[in-house]
Design a protein around this nucleic acid. Sequence first.
RNA 1: GCGGACGUAGCUCAGUUGGUAGAGCGUCGGGUUGUGGUUCCGAAUGUCGCGGGUUCAAACCCCGUCGUUCGCCCCA
Length: 434
Amino acid sequence: MSLSTQPYKGARDFYPDDKRKQKYMFGVLRTVAERFGYEEYDAPILEPLEIYVAKSGEEIVNEQTYVFEDRGGRKVVIRPEMTPTVSRMVAGKRQELAYPLRWYSIPNLWRYERPQRGRLREHWQLNVDIFGVATVHAEVEVITLVNDVFKTFGASSDMYSIHLNDRKLVNFVLRDYLGLDEPTAHAVGKLIDRMNKMDRDEFISKLDDVFSDEQKQASATEKLLSILDAKQLSDLPDTLKQGDIFADLDKTMSGLKAAGVTNFLFDPTLMRGFDYYTGIVFEVFDTDPENNRAMLGGGRYDGLVGLFGVEPVPTVGFGWGDVTLSNFLESHNLMPSLAPEANLYVALIGDVVEQAHPTIAKLRAAGLNVAVDLSGRKLGDQFKNAEKKGVNLVLVVGQSELESGSYSLKNLSTHSEDSLDLNGVIDAVKAQNG
RNA sequence: GCGGACGUAGCUCAGUUGGUAGAGCGUCGGGUUGUGGUUCCGAAUGUCGCGGGUUCAAACCCCGUCGUUCGCCCCA
């Protein structure tokens, strides 16, 4: 009976090649978030159960979290999302923080579910939140940030589309326009969420199951469909256009235009799972049919911070999973080939490890990442090894080089070879790495 | 939690109507001891995911189980 070498179900090992991709992705995410003035924070992976029970939504706590009791009898959850945590942190220093507060993090999150494409048990998620802005300038900023991330990865606008909706609109339609009670409204909301996964007849028959005879009499189904079919705000029935139900969506869209974002659209079927959203919600879809689900989503949740017993803080934020992001990058060929950490490989001739030490130390002190071949194998094998590791530049160091101070620097991809002194080697490696 | 597909060498896979396993790539060694990518020669490696069952005989059929994957639920 031997031990399995597989990682835990739904979780990934990151071998150096994988980790390199993750480092690249996170690097871009951090760069863009910080370009918008966001500060990085972090928190424990464990949280008390209560903060999820409070407002996260139902199933995620009951069935999709890792819950256990610690040795002190406390109910503990491995965080399935970051929003309650960041809300807790903001609430904890509610009075002393300077608003608007711009925070981001890339936490790992755990959900107990069946793994499938784009959904694993452990994933990392960029969380970007802006606290203290009640106007849709916050939504516009955050979505613009998302757009900049895509651009920084080299994506073009046709590769993704930004869907927008407003919970206030949804609530108005369900409660006031259709006059549904709370449980019915909730059920219809869940149905709308799944609308695109079924055909129209199926959707209508499911609606029939939910609506009362009275509601059917009032042609609730037809009314709802006419709203869900809207491609833009102007398609909506006139009776909805009174008041300022659309004001936020309207302003968000014009704000996005002003910010140079083009590929967004009004999507009345967009719901989002969590119940804590209170205003604009958005999701971004990969247009590649291979990745047919939301790759990121977020919205306004003005009530969460207040749950911790402090004055509420208006908040807009989103989460962007690393699995959906890497699927996106791979599908659109946007994942660059990434060089290994070492940018210089030293091949040794003969037993000169100790004599070569001062030379190698100088190279490292100059900022080069130097991997030394300690195998004692034939020179040809050392070249093969460098190539296999993906290190392009090899410095040959033997007795005569150490004595003369003239080294042979070999470029494995161009097959060129230069005779250089130590400073020349340093310059050449730096030039090669841009 | 529910449904489908799959599980053969390190990797990608082949294995005909059941007769105890192969290829390519990779790995290792070599083509005279200080120069690699192409080439040539040679070698190693599998309890055919695991456990039962049917059979004279199972990688192949049946059951269970674990894992992978796609979808449902839910969500990033």
